[in-house]
Amino acid sequence: MLRLEDLTKNFGGVLAVDGCNLEIEEGKITGLIGPNGAGKTTIFNMIAGALRPTSGKILYTSRGEDGKESTVDISGLPTHEMFHRGIVRTFQIPHEFGALTVLENLMVVPAEQHGESLYQSWFHRKKVIDREREVRRMAEDALEFLSLTHVRDELAQNLSGGQKKLLELGRTMMTDAKLVLLDEPGAGVNPTLLRKLADMIRRLNKERGYTFCIIEHDMDMIASLCDPVIVLAEGKVLTQGHMKDVRRDERVLDAYLGGGEEEAA
């Protein structure tokens, strides 16, 4: 459903992503791994519209209302455009709206909120309130799914690290997401919660049909969740396939232990 063609990002002479070609298939949970500085988050940022690629294409295939498939190059569109095409992302370091309650954090997300227009919120109060009820029901469902109902009215800044991670995931549930990009959902999360998190991702994949792409350093989590796994190194795809195979690939080991060996040699 998403194909990167020769995608390149040049930060003032530093090639963070160097002609990357990869494909994310619909309905799958794709893992994106690689050593630090391999360009994983930069690729996410470009897909999500936070960064503009230096060159290359991001081809996105989606099904219109009539059921017909169409493929367009979405590279360089602003974030909110990406969002409206169903591409949603989370952040490595949780970005919660600290002074808003947990419930409000989720209620911000849905599109088509009439109350975001001043005119509507002044003069069409009834319509706004009706939509607000729908949105709240959605948010409450999401909180139940995440087992966060007990902190519903807490300010998000008072949540624990793990709870903030869950909230990040929760935001992706507040819209008609098609492709969800998770940036290290497991970082800094305790093993119990990690298992729960993996469960939730699997359920969302199955029940709601989300396609996931996950950056993660926890190899056990990747092994249990993702197929296929794509390995990046120095801004390029090194290899890809099932985790079993990837683990055996010598080039992957080299990439992770990388520079040290070369220097030694």
């Binding site: 999500a48 936070a50 974030t79 992302r89 989370t90 952040f91 919660e96 409000e104 599109a111």
Partner: peptide, 16 residues
């Protein structure tokens, strides 16, 4: 308030 609290997250929530 969301924009004030965290602009990247508001962007990621599809807001202009």
């Amino acid at each position: 308030a969301a924009i004030r609290e965290d602009e990247p997250a508001a962007l990621a929530a599809g807001k202009n």
